Amino acid sequence: MTPASNVNAQLPRPTAGRANPSVAPPEPEKGASPEQIEADLARTRRELGETVEALAEKFDVKSQAQVQLDEVKHRVAAEIHGARQHALTYFRRARDFVTDEQGKPNRNGWIGVATVAATAALIVVGRARR
C-alpha cells in the first residue's frame, strides 16, 4: 500500500446524502426556530473545526517525526538503564566472588590475578619475539 492510499484509508468516508444519525444529530426540521438553526450551525462549525484540527495534526510531518523521535529516545534510555543495571549486578557478583567479607582478595581472586598476569606476560613475550 502506498503512503497516499494508507492515509486515505485512515480518513472517515463521507456518506451520500444525509449525515449518519449515529455520528451526528439530524439537521433541524423545515419549520425549525432560529435558535435551533443557530445551534445546528454552531455544532457544525465546532465539528468542522475539530475535523480540520485532527487532519492538520495527522498531516503535520514535523510533529509526527518529533513524537516518534521522543518514543525512540525513551526506549533507548530505558534500554541503557537496563543494561547499566545488568552490568552493575554482574560486576557486584564478580567482586563478591573474588573477595572475602573484608573486601580482600580470596583464593579465587588470587587465581584470577595470577591468570591475568600470566596472560599479559605471554602476550608481551609473544609480541617481543616477532
Rank of each mutant, 00 (worst) to 15 (best):
M1T: 15
T2N: 13
T2L: 07
T2I: 01
A4C: 09
V7P: 02
A9G: 15
P12H: 03
P12V: 03
R13M: 14
P14V: 01
T15D: 13
G17I: 01
P21V: 01
P21G: 01
S22V: 10
S22M: 06
V23I: 13
E27Y: 04
E27P: 05
P28S: 04
K30H: 08
G31D: 15
G31M: 07
G31I: 03
G31H: 05
A32M: 03
S33E: 05
P34Y: 00
E35V: 03
Q36C: 01
I37Y: 01
E38D: 12
A39F: 05
A39Q: 11
D40R: 08
A42T: 14
T44D: 09
T44F: 12
R46H: 13
G49V: 02
T51Y: 07
E53L: 08
E53S: 13
E53D: 11
E53A: 12
A54V: 01
A54G: 07
L55K: 11
A56R: 11
A56S: 11
K58R: 09
K58T: 03
F59M: 13
D60M: 01
D60F: 02
V61K: 10
S63R: 15
S63A: 15
Q64V: 03
A65D: 09
Q66C: 03
Q66W: 03
V67Q: 02
V67M: 00
L69K: 10
D70L: 06
E71H: 06
K73R: 13
H74R: 09
H74M: 06
A78D: 15
A78Y: 07
I80H: 14
G82T: 11
A83V: 04
Q85G: 11
H86S: 13
H86F: 06
A87M: 06
A87K: 06
T89G: 12
R92Y: 05
R92I: 04
R93C: 11
A94H: 07
A94L: 14
R95V: 05
R95T: 09
D96W: 07
F97Q: 10
V98F: 11
T99W: 05
T99L: 05
D100V: 10
D100K: 08
E101K: 13
E101W: 07
Q102V: 06
G103D: 02
K104D: 14
K104R: 14
P105V: 08
P105R: 01
P105D: 00
P105T: 04
N106F: 08
R107I: 09
N108W: 05
G109M: 00
G112F: 06
V113H: 05
V113L: 12
A114W: 04
T115A: 13
V116A: 02
V116W: 02
A117P: 04
A117T: 10
T119A: 14
L122P: 00
I123N: 09
I123R: 10
V124D: 14
V124H: 04
V124Q: 12
G126I: 00
G126T: 00
G126P: 01
